[in-house]
Amino acid sequence: MGYDIIGDVHGEATMVEALLGRLGCRDTGGAWRHPDRIVVFVGDFIDRGPEQLRAVGIVRRMLDA
């Protein structure tokens, strides 16, 4: 099993969704998932971007899934 590491989201939810799509993840049942890899987030989820709550929500749903 491999890992994809994403750092410093900074409240940019649209960018996170685009990146997850490019990594081969799909939004399944409300959470982004990859069939063979694990996504690891490091750094700041919020700080200055316009979509801070949505960015945290994306990550939270991935954790809960």
Rank of each mutant, 00 (worst) to 15 (best):
A13Q: 05
I46M: 13
R48T: 09
G2R: 11
D36R: 15
T28H: 09
V59G: 04
G21F: 04
F45N: 01
E51M: 06
Q52S: 14
V39D: 11
V9E: 05
G57S: 10
G21I: 00
L23A: 04
V40M: 15
V40P: 15
I46L: 14
F41R: 02
A13V: 01
I5N: 12
R60Y: 14
E51Q: 15
G29K: 04
R37Q: 09
V42L: 10
M15P: 09
V56E: 08
R48I: 03
G57K: 04
V16Y: 02
V9H: 10
V9L: 11
D44Y: 09
D44N: 14
R33C: 06
L19T: 13
F41L: 03
G2M: 03
G43A: 12
A13N: 03
P50N: 15
V16G: 01
G29D: 08
G30N: 02
R54P: 12
V59Y: 00
G43C: 13
G7Y: 03
G57W: 04
A31G: 12
V9F: 13
H34V: 03
A65C: 10
L63P: 01
L19K: 02
R48M: 06
D27M: 07
M62I: 02
R54T: 15
D44S: 11
V16N: 06
I46T: 14
V56G: 12
D47Y: 08
V56M: 15
L53P: 07
Q52N: 06
C25P: 01
H34A: 07
